[in-house]
Each structure stands twice: as C-alpha cells, then as structure tokens.
Design a binder for these strands. Structure first.
Lengths: 196, 196
DNA sequence: AAATTTGCTGACAAATTTGTCAAACATAAT
DNA sequence: ATTATGTTTGACAAATTTGTCAGCAAATTT
C-alpha cells in the first residue's frame, strides 16, 4: 500500500480509494476516511469542498484509470492470442487489487450524482480490438459471435469470480484459501475456453 | 410489480427489495423506503424495530430465495444439457429482474452487520450438480476443469453483463437498446461455449 | 524579521437520518 | 356502548454525519 508523500490531498484521495475499492466500505463517512488517513475531518474539507466532491474526483479518476488500462492492453500490438492472455493477467491482478471498484462505479452511476460529467473521450482502442476479434473469427481462430459479446465474456470470466468472492464464500462455505486456489486455475481455463 | 395486499409489513419488505435490488439505491434512507411504499416512517419502525432489522430481514430473505432458486434448478432431474440451458434462462430472468441484488449482498456481507447469522443450511443440491458436471467431463461432453470453476463460469457469463450494464453503457456509449440486443444473443452463445 | 501565504486544528453549527412516544384511529369482540 | 387490540400518525428527541470558521503554526516571501 504505497502512500506517496506528495502531501495530504493525495493521501486523502488514495485513502478514499482504498476504503471504497479495497475494503468495500461503500457507506464510509468522511470521518471513516479521515481516520483511515490519519488526519482530521476538517482537513478533508479543506482540500475537497464536500464529501460529494471527493467522491466525484475519486470516481472520475478510477473510471479514467480503468479506461486507460483497458486501452493500453487492448490497443497494444501483440499478436491476438498473446494480447488476450496479457489482458487476462493484467485485469486479474487489477480486479484482485480493487475488488469493489466496479460495484462502487455502478452504484455511483445510478445512486448519487445524477449528473456526473458524461464520459470524457469516445471509446478507446476498443474499436481496434473489436475488429481484431472479428478478423480472428473469420480466420476461425475463435468461435463466432458478436465481437462485443466476446469482449464482455472476457471481462465477465475474469472479473465476476473475484468481485463476488464474499458471496460465494458465504454460499458454498469455501475457505478463502480454497477459493483462491480455484482462481489460480482460471487463466489457463479461460484461454482454453476461448481458443479451444 | 405485484404488491400483495397482505398488509403493510409485507408491503414495506417488498418495497425495500424493489428500492435496493431493482432501483439500486443502496444508500436509501428509511424515509426513501417509506415514501416509495406510500406509508410513513413510524409505521416502518412499528413493524421493524430498526432500519438494520429491516435490512437484515430483506438480506436473509433474498439470500435464501437465491439459494432455493439455484437449488431447484441445479437439483432438477433434467438431462445435463437441458439443465444447463434451463439454468441460463431462469437466472438470466432473475438477474434481469433484480440487477442490484448481488451488489447489495456483497455490500451487506462486508460493510454493515458484521455478525449476520451464518449461512442457514449447508450447500444445496449444488453438490449433486457438481458431481454431474464431473461425470460429463469424464464423458467428454464438456471441457475438463474443476467443476466449481465450471459453475462459476456459468454464473459469471449470465450475471456479470446484466449487473454491469450501467458501467458498460457509460464506457462504450451504447444505447440501452443496443446493449439489450447483445444480451439476447447470449444464451445461445453460452451454450455454444460450453458444449462446443 | 515582518508579512503573507498555506496547511492544520478544535470547537461549533447545520443538516440529515434514525428512533420514540403518546395520542388518534379503526375494527372487532364483549 | 364499551373495551380491547392492533395500526397509523404527528410531534418530538437523539444520534449521526456533514460543513464552517476563527485561530494557530509552519513555511515562504518580501
């Protein structure tokens, strides 16, 4: 958990991210965040006008970061198979590191801040990737469906099991370690599912 | 949205479910729920000692319902292929009807109510299903992995795209209708992915 | 070194949310 | 009609959460 010494503002932002995305405290109060950051609440208000402002910044930052990450991976010029493999690795780690990020995002989209600024830029190199996918389907490397669904499958197979871990631990009475062992198998399995 | 006329208590419970699971208002106040139900707040406290009590009941009810549903579908005596197909249909509809349910559950598990009663019964007929999966793998009907991951894939491929719809609409600037059209393709596609 | 800016703090105020209670109300039983 | 029982309501109180502000301290500038 590297905390840059760039100053209190950054510290607060990063702490908020940790509380929301890693610890999953979606109802965290400003006091919770201040405590976690080891500062006091008025400081938080000094740097961020309001709680909403802090959340908005963290939200935008996270959304942007995710887009950049997807962009970098899907837009790279690796051969297709390697690109998919790389994507799985990168996003597996990313989601594992911030398991509550996506839940936070969908919650913010619907719940509060009804007028969050529209998405900054148009889609990333996702377009490029989607046409690559289409090409591979024509070549017969992968099963034929809509490229969009191919990509959604990729995200689903990588993200969902990590995001929902608490639920499955509860449902199926697995130990955390057992579950993690299952996760280890998944990269190879997903590759197998896609490329046969 | 059928609201039984069985009385206020039931009305409140069902309204709470709607607000949380369908509308995704995870931060809803007791006032929000009372308003949505067309009653006033003290009534809510008359039937449920506290907000926490209401949430606990709704949480338990939903978790149980989900287990029952999974049980009924996975424990049926349909042939394997039909069973999987049936599962996809049933859960696609279920998740579509309550897209925020799973988010609500994982949030409650970690966030509040640290001492929610442990899972009621041991796993459902999931065991049975898992051994059926194993058998099919031996028969070569489906790809070989751990049966648990097979099942997790099923849940992931069905649930994730529906749950994360708001996120993907935002990211890829799809219209809601376009996205829904993608969803329609998925049942056939998932069957294809699994049975080749 | 005085002055100005910048960051931090405790104490306070406002707003929101939750919980309580006694009185009003309805309905059915006595 | 009166009582008893369960339900609803307005008014109030408590608790929680958010936001403000004047003052203090450290650092920077002049």
């Amino acid at each position: 958990m590297p905390v840059k010494d760039v100053g209190t503002e950054q510290l607060i932002r990063e702490t908020a991210r940790r509380v929301f995305f890693v610890e999953g405290k979606l109802h965290a109060t400003t006091q919770d965040i201040a405590d976690a950051a080891g500062i006091n609440r008025p400081s938080l208000h000094y740097y961020f006008r309001s709680k909403n402002e802090l959340i908005k910044q963290v939200y935008e930052e996270a959304k942007g970061e995710m887009a950049v990450k997807a962009n970098a991976v899907l837009g790279s010029d690796l051969p297709f198979r390697e690109k998919v493999e790389h994507f799985i690795t990168i996003f597996f780690n990313y989601v594992t590191g911030s398991p509550y990020l996506q839940s936070f995002l969908i919650n913010e989209i619907k719940c509060k801040n009804p007028l969050l600024p529209k998405n900054t830029g148009t889609p990333p190199d996702v377009r490029k990737f989607l046409s690559e996918v289409e090409e591979e389907m024509k070549k017969g490397t992968i099963r034929t469906t809509s490229p969009e669904n191919f990509m959604i499958n990729l995200f689903a197979l990588v993200s969902y099991p990590i995001i929902m871990k608490p639920l499955y631990l509860d449902f199926f009475e697995y130990s955390s370690d057992d579950y993690d062992r299952l996760m280890m198998e998944r990269k190879a399995m997903i590759m197998e599912m896609i490329f046969g």
